[in-house]
Design a protein around this nucleic acid. Structure first.
Length: 908
RNA sequence: GGGCACUUAGCUCAGUUGGUUAGAGCGCAUGCCUCACAUGCAUGAGGUCAGAGGUUCAAUUCCUCUAGUGCCCACCA
């Protein structure tokens, strides 16, 4: 007898134990092993403020399946984990924590504050990493990286300096997205557009000159339309389209800005839309990107009217100090009082929101640092166009390329304290000497560089003037400016390390679509620029996890299903298997708690089937080589069938995993293991369970199935595998380092599979009769199989006992027999199944049943007949299709004849 | 405004390069505590594959249009 499994399956009992063991044995760690091929993937570094959610559970399960699969295929498998420092998010978290203590970051000062963040990070920043272990993630924890680590920080500085020296980093005064709550600039990607129902306000601006406001009854106005009336405080002009006949002659006049009574120019520009609003555009260069462009073109002043927190500044006259939205209302009131308000109409438009705190973003003129993206994009575009990098599903290729073709410069400076500080230093003396020239794009080309020193470390003195009065730029870099280096900075770049050489380029990147622009595209650009090579070969984009109503799961909506709760309730394997099996490639996932029962039930099934096999296994019988055994032994028909089905499944699973079709892989294993192995094979061989051939096949199929299942359900497979008798001694004692089963194609037989299908249909037919006639399972029945092909007799006689057992028939006759009196009839292909039911049969009921069947077949015959009589079909369709059709028709005709005969003879 | 997906059983979804009788899980009905498993076993009911047109011998599958749903991108103030 082999070891026994406990009767009840308790997932939690096995999880921690196995994980600890794997980790201790060092199975997760990979080194630059020259005798093996590398397979590496890097984790999409989760934000350190984050906790594990279903999106991670899906993402990391997929990666773990890939990694475990490749590891079993004898690759040197590196899965690099880590976290990013999430500048804005983390700073917000720590600021909130300080606020509870009644403190603000400015009370602490920069240095102390950053210390606080580090302290927070020590305490909470690795929560998500610990949670990953609960998922069973087989990451190489020894290499865990953090974007603020010394090595990674060094690569950030290196990259900044290189790009600066190449002329790809510049500082300039441009319109950027400003979050008034976080009080920092954001990149375009960090400003998320959301459609809002707003208003479009029509406002009169008086035209200066005779008849202008206050000058008499015939005062003249120009009406402008705006969604943000408060920005009028920064207006410097009114723009019209030169083709607009309505405003002819207005060009040479001046307009008075109400409230501030500033004189505004009227400018003409073709980019003004004649159809929008009144065709007159108020120009606010410091608070609108379009207007900013106009100001450069027409040489207009740029007036910033807001403070960092989006209150109105001194340029706003009486409105100074007021919040932007209060100011909007107040200005509208004043305009109405003055009779300058015309009307408002509902207007739906997209408004940018901060991706961290969802505050409405304020477009604002501000001096920031940028990366010139076009030159970086070119090689990254090529790498995808020529197929060196492939997206799965393929449609994301287009999304990526469209964005890359239209790429815009990247604002990388952030006005926060947590992050990599810009390696930019200012010589105060040189800056002072340059006066105000350094500011803005209005200055000549390189003026902004005056006094700017870019270096990895703080220079002792200014290389120009020798002054030691040097200050570092207070800004820090966008978090993505470190994340985009992840595939190589984590392997030690800029040092030419052995592991960098061995593992780069990595093989696959698994991530969600939200992050294609933020991260994937930029990593490709960085890889091409700094490594001269792609960072990964395949990009697999999985779907978004949503709740059952289709909304994205988020904490604020309260619709989250916490993966850790599910693990507690159902077990890790159940969570993994469930989420994988319901996620079709690249499709969004709609989750509800009940869906996890699927995986739990499957894990339970695996457990019980294994327990049954172990209870019956004689370890001394199973030590054989399957290939030899297969050749030599006279295996039974079910044995050959289950081997064929196993290897068919194995081949399909391997193919699916190579193509990133995880759900299909999972579902075919489920189907095989449960509905073929358990429901049929195990049931069939209960009769011969003590025989050696059954022992061998049961054991081999179970053991190999466990290996095939391991990437999906690591814990339950490990636990059972540990209890299996060993075929040989020695070697590593864990399923996770066993080889992936070798595909034995010679054991796959379509013919065997078809024959078994036939037998299954016969058993089902008898069961059906039993069920229809409501016959108690304990009541004995007999069956007669009236066969027409002589070869069927041998095949069916060999499995007669099995048919008897599975259909609970006590006596079975196989051969040419007439229909016995009072029997129920079923036709399975060309075989008639008779079940004599003396005294039990209600002839009318049986007739009705047969008639129903007859009608179904009749309909089918009609449709096939019409197809076959169509000359176009017989001449143009492939021969095999035509033959199949006519064979099938013959079979159906035979069936219907038999049914009719039986119908006639029913009472005899 | 541009782009992408989706619409198949009561529900949630699969469906391999067009090819016999379109599948699963859950739910439902009926019968079973059969000595691995009631987190189970058996049997069954349930579908004009969103609608219209086209290509083809053949369309759930390919193309076009329509309707509905969802997502992404976008400087019409």
């Amino acid at each position: 007898m082999a070891d026994e499994l406990p009767k009840a399956y308790d997932p939690h009992d096995v999880e921690d134990r196995s994980y600890k063991k794997w980790e201790e044995k060092g199975y997760f760690h990979a080194s630059s092993n020259p005798n093996k091929k590398p397979y590496s993937i890097v984790i999409p570094p989760p934000n350190i403020t984050g906790i594990l959610h279903m999106g991670h559970a899906l993402n990391d399960t997929i990666q773990d399946i890939l990694v475990r699969f490749k590891r079993m295929q004898d690759f040197e498998t590196e899965w690099m984990p880590g976290t990013d420092h999430a500048g804005i998010a983390t700073q917000n978290v720590v600021e909130r924590k300080l606020a509870k203590e009644g403190k603000k970051r400015h009370d602490l000062g920069r240095e102390k504050f950053v210390e606080e963040v580090w302290k927070w990070r020590e305490e909470y920043g690795s929560t998500i990493i610990r949670q990953l272990k609960k998922l069973g993630a087989s990451c190489d924890w020894q290499r865990t990286r953090f974007t603020m680590d010394e090595g990674l920080s060094d690569s950030v500085l290196e990259v900044f300096v290189r790009l600066y020296e190449k002329g790809l980093i510049y500082r300039g005064n441009y319109i950027i997205n400003w979050c008034p709550r976080c009080q920092t600039a954001l990149s375009d990607e960090e400003s998320q557009h959301k459609d809002l129902d707003g208003m479009l306000y029509y406002i009169k601006y008086p035209v200066k000159g005779p008849g202008a406001r206050g000058q008499g009854p015939d005062e003249e106005f120009i009406v402008v339309a705006t969604t943000r009336p408060e920005t009028m405080l920064g207006d410097v002009a009114v723009a019209i389209n030169p083709k607009d006949k309505r405003y002819k002659g207005l060009k040479d006049k001046k307009v008075i800005l109400p409230i501030l009574e500033r004189e505004l120019k009227v400018i003409e520009d073709t980019m003004v839309d004649l159809k929008f609003g009144t065709g007159a555009l108020k120009v606010t260069p410091a608070h609108d990107p379009v207007d900013f462009g106009l100001s450069l073109k027409h040489g207009l002043e740029q007036i910033n009217i807001m403070n960092d927190d989006a209150t109105i500044n001194a340029n706003g006259g009486d409105y100074e100090g007021m919040d932007r939205f209060e100011a909007r209302e107040a200005i509208l009131v004043e305009l109405k009082e003055r009779g300058l308000f015309v009307k408002s109409e509902a207007h739906r438009h997209a408004v940018g929101h901060c991706y961290r705190c969802h505050t409405v973003v304020e477009p604002r003129l501000s001096p920031q640092w940028f990366v010139k993206m076009k030159p970086l994009a070119e090689p990254a575009i090529k790498a995808v166009e020529d197929g060196r990098i492939k997206f799965y599903p393929e449609r994301w290729t287009k999304v990526y390329l469209d964005w890359m073709y239209n790429i815009r410069d990247w604002c990388i400076s952030r006005q926060i304290w947590w992050g990599h500080r810009l390696p930019v230093y200012y010589c105060k003396q040189c800056v002072a000497g340059a006066g105000s020239r350094g500011q803005g794009p209005g200055a000549s080309k390189d003026d902004w560089k005056t006094g700017v020193i870019v270096a990895k470390t703080k220079p002792e003195k200014c290389p120009k003037c020798g002054s030691t009065d040097i200050e570092q730029d207070p800004d820090v870099l966008d978090t993505w400016f470190s994340s985009w280096l992840w595939p190589f900075s984590t392997f030690g770049w800029p040092n030419k390390t052995e592991e960098l050489k061995y593992f780069y380029p990595t093989n696959a990147l698994v991530t969600a679509q939200e992050i294609i622009f933020f991260w994937v595209a930029r990593m490709i650009m960085a890889g091409m620029e700094f490594m001269g090579d792609i960072p990964f070969k395949d990009v697999y984009i999985h779907g978004t996890v949503r709740d059952i109503t289709g909304t994205k799961m988020s904490k604020s909506l309260g619709n989250v299903i916490d993966p850790l709760d599910m693990i507690k309730k159902y077990g890790t394997d159940a969570l993994r298997f469930s989420i994988i099996s319901i996620t079709a490639q690249g499709q969004d996932v709609f989750l509800s708690e009940g869906k996890f029962e699927l995986g739990r039930n499957f894990a339970n099934k695996i457990w019980n089937a294994s327990r049954f096999i172990l209870m019956n296994l004689k370890p001394e019988d199973i030590r054989v080589d399957l290939c030899e055994f297969f050749k030599k032994e006279d295996l039974s028909f079910p044995d050959r069938w289950i081997l064929s089905r196993f290897y068919s499944t194995l081949g399909y699973v391997g193919k699916c995993l190579d193509e990133y079709k995880f759900n299909e892989a999972a579902n075919s294993i489920y189907e095989f293991f449960w509905h073929e192995f358990c429901d049929w094979y195990i049931e069939m061989v209960k009769l011969s369970i003590t025989e050696k051939r059954t022992q061998v096949i049961l054991y081999k199929i179970l053991e190999k199935s466990l290996r095939m299942l391991h990437p999906f359900m690591p814990f339950v497979t490990e636990e059972i595998w540990q209890k299996l008798p060993r075929e040989r001694s020695g070697g590593d004692d864990s399923i996770m380092v066993q080889p992936w089963p070798h595909l034995q194609s010679q054991m796959i037989s379509g013919d065997t599979e078809a024959k078994m299908q036939h037998m299954i249909e016969i058993v089902t037919a008898i069961r059906n009769i039993r069920s229809v006639w409501n016959i108690d399972p304990k009541t004995t029945i007999n069956a007669i199989l009236n066969i027409h092909k002589p070869e069927d007799e041998k095949i069916l006689s060999d499995v007669a006992d099995i048919i008897r057992k599975l259909s609970r028939v006590s006596d079975i006759k196989i051969g040419k027999f007439p229909k016995p009196k009072s029997s129920a009839v079923s036709v399975v292909r060309d075989i008639e199944v008779y079940v004599p039911l003396e005294g039990l049969i209600d002839f009318e009921k049986e007739k009705a049943r047969i008639k129903k069947e007859e009608a179904r077949i009749d309909k089918e015959i009609a449709s096939i007949t019409s197809r076959l009589s169509d000359e176009n079909f017989t001449s143009k369709a492939p021969e095999e299709i035509v033959k199949k059709q006519s064979d099938y028709k013959e079979e159906l005709v035979l069936q219907i004849q038999k049914l009719r005969d039986n119908l006639k003879n029913l009472d005899k």
